[in-house]
Design a binder for these strands. Structure first.
Lengths: 220, 220
DNA sequence: AACAATCTCGACACCCTGTCGAAACGCGCT
DNA sequence: AGCGCGTTTCGACAGGGTGTCGAGATTGTT
């Protein structure tokens, strides 16, 4: 079960209306301005005017490139999730080789991608509360990862490495939800959080315990 | 380790300035209007004007009772967390009696409380992204629950019922984070979520697996 | 040069927030 | 009854954000 994209919104068409000339660089400028500003202050405190000025255009001109501030975030999120999927690669297909290492790869690569785009991930976590589109896109992405996880768990049960128990889908939902929340808290650094250096191993331990009832699952 | 409140903001002083006459009912009217409106649409889409009109007063009068819209939510959150703590009671102190039942009680009671105040919980989940005060209060509450969980895990390890492994605090953070996220998703009904009827058992299974590496931990 | 598609912006209408200061109310007191 | 003093209410304002419109500037093509 290779992780392949089933995009909810096409990244190449989310922004501007069709046709393009020199303004591509302006669009890029808006995106990079957004990513830069998001590292400085919360997404909600960034106005469209900030984005426009940062990209060297006026506020109305911004609307030529994106229909709203949220659309910028959506485009950024598309990129990050695509990158995460690519990083995950075919890890799940080779699970039986060495389950502990494969699950650790999976969690670790997601963590690396999230950490590399910390500002975008945190902004999405914040905007998800206020914006339905962000919420839906995030849900679609999570749904995809849940399905992949579910399939891998079922495969591990089929080969006798993991015991039966909870419906695989429910377990997959719980574990993916945990990862999301824990990684966001660690990246944000607010409230109770696991240290960044240990977060992957903490999550891995819970995944293995929940799936195999052991932290040393058997290879094929 | 009985769950006792260590309030981050005093509910009785968060709202109005000192002194009171008949206006108490107005304050209550604002709170109940807020809870009602939150069941109809997301918190971000409720204006102060909506709250004021719902309570039968003008917008400026609202500011006599609360300094901002967020303060209303904070007050509501204070109530809910106090109720959750009360519901949890001394469950954690009697863990050794029958670990599976006690952990199930704990998770189940939190779930009951959250479900009873669905609108408030979801609104907080949404507002946490945009508002630092909500974020901090929520963090303080979570920190408290994490500490309680951590203490209980350490006690179970000490009596030999649970194996050593992850630092108890890290495990407690991961499990509480999972509960938060999974319960919110289930209540909101958006994206991948566990069915409401099964969510407590799913969470319980992961908790027991992670703490005991077994779903049938030994009694004292 | 002329045309059309692409791009830009000044100006506007609208909504929301937060803060005045003035006025109305309730109530104990003389 | 009339006074005084906190309590409570609201009309009106300033400030800042969003989204839209139509006119004008720029650019590539013929």
């Amino acid at each position: 079960m290779t992780i392949a994209r089933a995009p909810a919104g096409n990244a190449t068409t989310r922004g501007r209306r069709a046709g393009r000339r020199s303004g591509d660089q302006r669009e890029l400028a808006i995106l990079s301005t957004a990513e830069r500003l998001m590292t400085e202050r919360p997404f909600a405190e960034i106005s469209i005017d900030d984005l426009a000025r940062g990209a060297g255009i006026s506020r109305p001109a911004f609307y030529f490139y994106f229909p709203s501030k949220d659309a910028v975030l959506l485009t950024l999120l598309d990129r990050v999730t695509a990158e995460a999927d690519a990083a995950a690669g075919d890890t799940l297909d080779r699970m039986a080789e060495d389950p502990r290492s494969r699950w650790r790869d999976l969690i670790g690569r997601f963590h690396d991608t999230f950490r590399a785009h910390k500002a975008v991930v945190l902004a999405c976590g914040q905007a998800r509360g206020a914006n339905a589109e962000v919420r839906e896109l995030w849900s679609a992405v999570l749904e995809h990862w849940v399905r992949c996880t579910q399939t891998a768990i079922e495969a591990e049960r089929r080969r006798g490495a993991a015991p039966d128990g909870l419906p695989a889908r429910d377990l997959a939902i719980a574990l993916n939800s945990m990862n999301e929340r824990v990684m966001c808290a660690t990246l944000a650094g607010d409230g109770p959080a696991v240290a960044e250096s240990g977060v992957v191993d903490v999550l891995l331990d819970v995944w293995l315990s929940a799936i195999y009832r052991s932290t040393t699952p058997p290879s094929a």
